[in-house]
Each structure stands twice: as structure tokens, then as C-alpha cells.
Nucleic acid binder design. Structure first.
Lengths: 249, 249
DNA sequence: GGAATAGTGTCTGTTAGACAGTATTCG
DNA sequence: CGAATACTGTCTAACAGACACTATTCC
């Protein structure tokens, strides 16, 4: 809400202040593996641990704006590039002790990046690295409750692939059906039947649209594949369900 | 995140403080119509306007705990009852000017209540009323950005009915298939084929389980219907899609 | 009996899944 | 040539949607 029971001339400083931050689970596909962007913490608490990128909301920023700003800072990508990326609010984490220093409420986002340039640029980006998803254990548990946030983000992205055209957000502007299938296979961790996947995608109006021009070789082997662009549709009807059949409870 | 770039001994009071609140979109079914719980504001801003119930997070409360506390306060329901209700985090609204008084970040929740006792009890509950959903216009626009939050909540609940067993949260502990169908029809605003709906529900393992005992008359007419309880499943596979085919983009 | 609701059975067009087979490219 | 990938076609079992029909109750 917004304070119905707040006293009339209530004092903004009456309560212990809350800090509000954004945390980002940024996914990309590199070498047929799902990768996530992590930063190494330089200071306590959790100094030396890996964490999701993120930061404070500035005084006149919404969480969405702050998330895009942080994304640009951490990846070194241009503002224009970041403006076109898929960014989706996940949920808000507000357990009182999630940060030992003070009360921090964090709005988590999931972002999808098509290609994966190694983070570069000044400042924050210097500490950011792409890490294969699922191997966080190799880097020790993430700082704060970021393991939980990351797991939630992965589950959400997997579920969104079923009902939306989100998969194209992982692909470059022009892509082959095989590359699109790779997105599903990599995120879901399953193998899909190639002919059936192709038929399903092409039968869904607005999912992809053919691109004129010469086909492209995939990995140097096999027949060159036709190219497609993302279509106008955002939702998938009927959905493209995961083989096993797990959904978001 | 949680401050990676915060200066080492940073001062929690350095920034203008953010207030953090919860807003609740509480739905119920009364007389075959979807109703939402609204409160009438007694003070500026938006004095006299209707608003979603909600309130500030207490210093050591998570958003979920605060939401259940507010729900109990506004409805007059017991803590035990509220503990069993379906409560789902929607998203967080953080536009800088959503509250003219100060910076307020609000975590919105959607809640589903099976029966609809008129709100009673002291304090806040006195101002709360059930209002038919879709007629907010008759009461003027809601305060703050609550029209938007309410619309988002409705869309989310509708989408969740497709993929989860959520519909049983609108029903009393024992219900008929017809009552369950009413939930879908009312929230979606469509008519469903009775035999097909029945077949689909009974064919989904874990959605409902039969209850021994005598059937119950529905509305005083027709054949008494068998009773069911909510099953163990939380997800619906395959999903029960809306006839038209709109999903969550 | 008429109206209303619960419940059963049946038909049909669509679709998902499996899989055989052809086309094109690289080494 | 073999291996790998793209693409086409076909078969089958399952399912959604439509709808006819019976059963049980209140008026």
C-alpha cells in the first residue's frame, strides 16, 4: 500500500531506515552452456565470495531503472544495448537478517543476454565474470541469499520458456532453428526432438519469421540452416511444455 | 544485491530513507462474482478514495510476514485462518513519485480467500469492504497506483489458474466440481463446458480427491453433487488453458 | 411435468511424440 | 566415403471441444 494508517504528519526518519537494492541474475549462453554473471566481493561481509551484481537504488530511480544501470555498469555494455535486453522482475527478498550490516530489501531481476562479451570497462565491470551455471559450488556458496535468488531466477527463466517467446532473447538478431532449440535444451537440461521442435516453432504464429538471404553454417558441419528473426508474438499458444512436465508451483 | 560498492563503513542514514510497505490484492468469490477487499482512506493524500489494504513493514518483519499480519488486521480473520490462506508475491512497485509524501517502495501480494466474511474487528478492519471486481470505476479511481496493482494481480491470478491448482484456494475445504468450475468461470469471465471440465479435473492426478459421504445440494436445485477436497498436487499438467488463449507475456 | 444441475458416453479434428528418410556440407 | 546437421513426411496415441443423453432433485 502506501500508508493508510500512517500518522498525519509522519516523520520519514522515525523508523530505522531500509536500504533498497536491486540484485541481477544475468544469464547468457556460451559454448552450449548456461552462464551467469558473478562478481567477486572485495569487502566484508563475504569478502572474497562471489555474488550477484547489483546495487542501491538512487534517490529518484525505480528498481527497473536501477537494474538497467547496474547491468550496464557491470557488463560494460552500452546503454543502448542494455535498453534492448530482456529484463524481468523476479521477486523481492526482504528477510530481516539477509544482510548483517543493516536492513536491506532487495528487488531481484532476471536478465537475458544473447552473446556473451567478457565484462569490461571501468569500475565495477572489472570484478565481473561469466561463470557456468550449476558450478557455483566450485566457487563456494554465493554471498548473502544469492544462491536462493539464483535458483529462483533459473526456475523462472525455465518456466517462462514454456509460455513465452523469451527464448529469442538469448539469440542474436538472426538465428537458426537449431540455435533456438539449443536455448531450450541448455536451459532445461534436456534433449528435444529436432523435427518436432521445428514443426512446433514454425506452427506458432509470430514466434519467428524467416529472413531472406543465404543460409548459415552451424559449427562448420552439416547442411547450412535458414535464418530467422524474432516474431511479434510475446506469448506462446499453446505452450511448449518441458518434456517431464514440471511447472512453477 | 546487497551493497558491493558501498563504502566500507557506510552510513545507513546517508541517503534519503526509503519506506517499505506491502499492498494486498485480496480476492474472494461472493454470489458468483469476483470481489476484492478495499479500504476507504481517511486522510490525505487521496482522502476519501478507495485503496488496497496494506501497511509498513515493521523493523524485523519480512514482506511475507507483514502481508499476513495486515491481512489478519484488515479482515478480522484469526491468525490461524490467515496462516492457511494462499498468499503470493506479485511484484514490487518502486516508481519515485508513486507516493507524493516520500519515497515508498511497495511489495504487492495477491491473496485468495475462500468464503467472504464481511470484514469485522477493531481498527483497520472497520474501514475495509468487499467490492465487486471490475466496478472500481463506480468508486472512482483507486488511490496511488493501486488500479495498476489490482489489474496486475487479477491478470496473475487468472494466469495461475491455468498452470496450478490454485483454484481450490477459492473454495471451502469441501467443494463440488461445479463450484470449482465457477471459480474458473468467474475469474476468467468465460463459460466452460461442464462435462469437459469435469473430465479434465478428474483426469489430473492430485488436483482433487473424492470425499466419502453424502452429496450436497447446490443452490437448492438439481441433483446433489459429490464432494471433493484439494489434492496434493500444486502444478497442473498439462495445463488448463483459457479458451481464448491469452497468457502472461 | 418443467427446470435446473450432476454425471456418462461418444464422436471428431488437432496435436505431441516417435521415427524413417532425404539433402547438404566438411573432413 | 562417413559424420554431422537441416529439413520433410508419416504414423499413432492422446486430448480438447462439441454435444447427446441419462439421473436426481425442487418447484
Amino acid at each position: 500500500m502506501t500508508p493508510p494508517q500512517a500518522p498525519e504528519g509522519y516523520d520519514p526518519y522515525a523508523f530505522e531506515p531500509f536500504a533498497v537494492t536491486v540484485d541481477l541474475a544475468v544469464f547468457t549462453l556460451r559454448e552450449e552452456r548456461l552462464h551467469v554473471l558473478l562478481v567477486e566481493r572485495g569487502q566484508e561481509p563475504y569478502a572474497g565470495a562471489w555474488a550477484l551484481p547489483g546495487g542501491f537504488l538512487l534517490p529518484r530511480e525505480s528498481a527497473e531503472v536501477a537494474a538497467r544501470r547496474e547491468l550496464a555498469e557491470e557488463t560494460g555494455l552500452s546503454g543502448d544495448t542494455v535498453a534492448g535486453l530482456h529484463l524481468e522482475q523476479l521477486r523481492t527478498y526482504s528477510e530481516p537478517d539477509r544482510d548483517p550490516r543493516m536492513r536491506v530489501v532487495s528487488v531481484a531481476f532476471a536478465a537475458l543476454v544473447p552473446d556473451a562479451p567478457e565484462p569490461r570497462g571501468g569500475g565495477d565491470a572489472a570484478r565481473a565474470r561469466w561463470r557456468p551455471y550449476g558450478t557455483q559450488g566450485a566457487y563456494g556458496p554465493l554471498a548473502f541469499d544469492h544462491d536462493r535468488i539464483l535458483a529462483d531466477a533459473h526456475e523462472r527463466v525455465g518456466a517462462r520458456l514454456e509460455y513465452t517467446c523469451l527464448a529469442t532473447a538469448f539469440c542474436p538478431p538472426e538465428f537458426t532453428i537449431g540455435e533456438l532449440r539449443q536455448v531450450y535444451e541448455t536451459v532445461w537440461g534436456v534433449e528435444l526432438d529436432r523435427p518436432n521442435f521445428r514443426r512446433k516453432v514454425l506452427a506458432t504464429p509470430g514466434f519467428v519469421q524467416a529472413v531472406e538471404g543465404p543460409p548459415r553454417l552451424t559449427g562448420g558441419r552439416g547442411k547450412p540452416a535458414a535464418l530467422y528473426r524474432a516474431g511479434e508474438a510475446t506469448a506462446l499458444h499453446p505452450p511448449l511444455l518441458r518434456p517431464e512436465g514440471r511447472s512453477t508451483p
